[in-house]
Nucleic acid binder design. Structure first.
Lengths: 220, 220
DNA sequence: CGCCGACTTGAAACACCTCAAATAGGGTGG
DNA sequence: CCACCCTATTTGAGGTGTTTCAAGTCGGCG
C-alpha cells in the first residue's frame, strides 16, 4: 500500500531531503554567530569540545547523544528549527551532537554571549528562558520514560505533531533514533507503530510520514 | 542481623528524625525569603500553585512528583540542604512537592528575585547557574532510566553517597520513593538492594543506612 | 499490646528484548 | 537506465528481566 502511494507524485518525497518548514522565531540573540551546513550523520560537536559555544538550529534536525560503555547509545534530545542546544555543555557531560538530516546550524560563542548578558538584561533573561525551556524538555523526557512502549511512541509522535502544528508529521529520524531516545529497541518501536495504526491512533502514510489522529497525550 | 545492630545504641536511630548534616553553601540569594518547617509527608506546594515562589532546602529532604492518571506516581527529583527547587514551575507542570522527612525550607518570592536580578548581574548569573544545575540533574535522571534495575539502584545510591561525602548513606526516603524515582516497583528495588549486597557492592547496616563500597558509577 | 506501614521474599505472568529472516527503497557504478 | 548493494523497516519466535500477586517479618506508634 505504501508502493501505491509512491505512484502518486504528490505524496512522493525523498527520505533525506526533507526539512522542517517553520521559520525560527525572533530572539534577542537571533543574529549572533554564523551559520554552518551540516550533512546527514555529521557531527556538530563531540564529547571533548565542551562549553565554548551554544548552537541554534536553522533548518533540519539535530540529535544530541551519549555513547555508553556497553555500546548502547542514549539520545538526549532532538532539536528543530528555532531550538537552542549545547546549553548543558558547561559541565563535562559526554555528549555529542549530529545532524539526523541535512541541517543548518548557527554557532554562537559563549564568551560573547555572556559578556552581552552582563550589560543587557534582556539577553540575560533570554538565556535563563532558553535554559528553562531545556529543563522542561529534559523533565518531559524523564516522564516519557515512565510509560509503556506504545505510550512512549505515541506521546513522542504527539510531541512531534505539536512542534509541527500539523496533523501529519515528517519524521526526520530513524526508528533506531527514536528507540535510543525512548529506551526501546527499533523492533519494539516498529511494533508500537503497527499497534497504534491498528487502533487508528495514527496512520503511516509512508514509514516516515505519519498522521497523528489523537489530540491529547496518551494515557498516563 | 539488623536486630543485633539495634541493640547497639550508637547505631540506633529513629527512622523519621534523621537530618542531613551538611550546611548549605553561600549564594547571592542566601538570605532572601523566610524559612518554614515542613513535617513528614506534608506538601510544600501543590499542582495548581504555579510560579510564585522558588524554594531552598535548609534541612531534611524534599521530593517533587507528578501523579499520573492511572494512579502511578512519578518522582521528578529529591532535594537536599542547599538545593533549590520549584524552578520549573513557571510553566504549568503538574508537579507537587512534599517533605520525605521533617524538613526546613526557605521560600523565596519570584517577583522579588527577578527584580533583583534585573539590577544585580550576580543574581541573574546565579539564577542561570541554579537552573543549569537543575538541567544537569534532569538529564542525569533520564540517563539513569536507561539502565538495568541493579544499575539504577546502584547509581542512585552512588549519587546519594556523593552528596553526603561519606561512605555511609542515610536514606531519607522509602523504597517506594526510590521506585517511583527510578521507574521500578518497590519489590524490584528491594531485590536490587539484596543483589548489590550479595556482590559486596553495598552493605545494609540497617534498611535505611547503607554503606556504598564502589567509587565509580556502575557499568553503562 | 496490637495495629499499621515499610521491607523482604517467592512464584507466576507479561512486556520487552534478542536473534533471525524477509521486504523495500536509495544510492552507486557500469 | 539498470543491476547491485546497503540501510531501514517490518514481522516472527523464543528468552529474560521486571512486574504482579501473595505472604510473612519487623519496628514504630497509639
Amino acid at each position: 500500500m505504501w508502493k501505491a502511494n509512491l505512484k502518486n507524485k504528490k505524496l512522493q518525497f525523498h527520505r533525506h531531503k526533507r526539512q522542517s518548514l517553520f521559520p525560527p522565531s525572533r530572539s534577542p540573540i537571533d543574529r549572533m554567530g554564523s551559520s554552518t551546513l551540516i550533512s546527514r550523520g555529521k557531527k556538530v560537536f563531540r564529547n571533548g569540545q565542551a562549553g565554548k559555544h551554544i548552537y541554534r538550529v536553522e533548518s533540519g534536525c539535530i540529535r544530541t547523544y551519549a555513547n555508553l560503555s556497553d555500546g548502547r547509545r542514549h539520545i538526549v534530545a532532538f532539536y528543530f528549527p528555532g531550538d537552542y542546544f549545547g546549553l548543558e555543555m558547561h559541565k563535562k557531560h559526554r555528549i555529542s551532537a549530529e545532524a539526523t538530516t541535512p541541517s543548518s546550524v548557527r554557532v554562537i560563542d559563549i564568551k560573547a554571549l555572556t559578556s552581552r548578558a552582563a550589560i543587557d538584561v534582556a539577553v540575560a533573561q533570554y538565556m535563563l528562558h532558553i535554559t528553562n525551556v531545556e529543563l522542561q524538555r529534559a523533565q518531559n523526557h524523564s516522564l516519557l520514560l515512565h510509560n509503556s512502549s506504545d505510550e512512549r511512541v505515541g506521546n513522542f509522535l504527539f510531541e512531534m505533531k505539536k512542534r509541527n502544528r500539523s496533523k501529519e508529521v515528517d519524521l526526520l529520524m530513524t526508528r533506531q533514533d527514536i528507540a535510543d531516545y525512548l529506551n526501546l529497541t527499533h523492533e519494539t518501536v516498529s511494533r508500537a507503530f503497527a499497534r497504534l495504526e491498528k487502533t487508528s491512533a495514527i496512520s503511516l502514510l509512508t514509514p516516515w510520514r505519519i498522521a497523528v489522529h489523537f489530540r491529547k497525550p496518551l494515557a498516563a
